[in-house]
Amino acid sequence: MKLKESPVLVSIVHLVLWPVKLLALWIFLRGHHLPGGGFIAGLVMAGAVALLRGMAYGYEEAVRLLDIPFPAVLGLGLAVATVTVLGPALLGHPVMKHAFGRLSLPLLGEVEWATAVLFDLGVFVVVVGTVKAILLQIGAGKAREPGRPGAGERGAMPIRLRR
């Protein structure tokens, strides 16, 4: 994983990145009726994007490129999920009550909708945020290998041993 900024690799990553994102979206949307859903889609999305970018640019660079505040992303996802959970209560329904139905749209024809998908969206966002944060942070942390000045020479923290 020391392949940094190889132009070929960057191009390939760019090519692959969008199909992967679409794949994740597809997995997410089909989740209500077929295998898939927020968890898997989030994992695919975050895993692929973070790994590919990390490979292409190196993780420190990727962290800088993707300079989004992870805590905020997590908060956003949790907020979406919480709102869909508590929202029905504001409308006089039991908490967590989901609605669903069918809808005719001009171009797409008959489309199903379900508010449960909104909750799943919250899950998706949280998973994406967490996994991306973990991967990129760990990846970037890795770049500071021991042996580099400032890291390796540093004395260990004193530990007092037992008799």
Binding site: F39, I138, G141, A151, A156, M157
Partner: peptide, 23 residues
């Protein structure tokens, strides 16, 4: 999914431990 989060956390913890204590 939870285990993934826990594993990641443990990994970082272990990593930091090795970094800090050289052991």
């Amino acid at each position: 999914v939870i285990n993934f989060g826990v594993t990641a956390f443990l990994l970082v913890l272990a990593y930091r431990m090795v970094q800090e204590h050289r052991s």
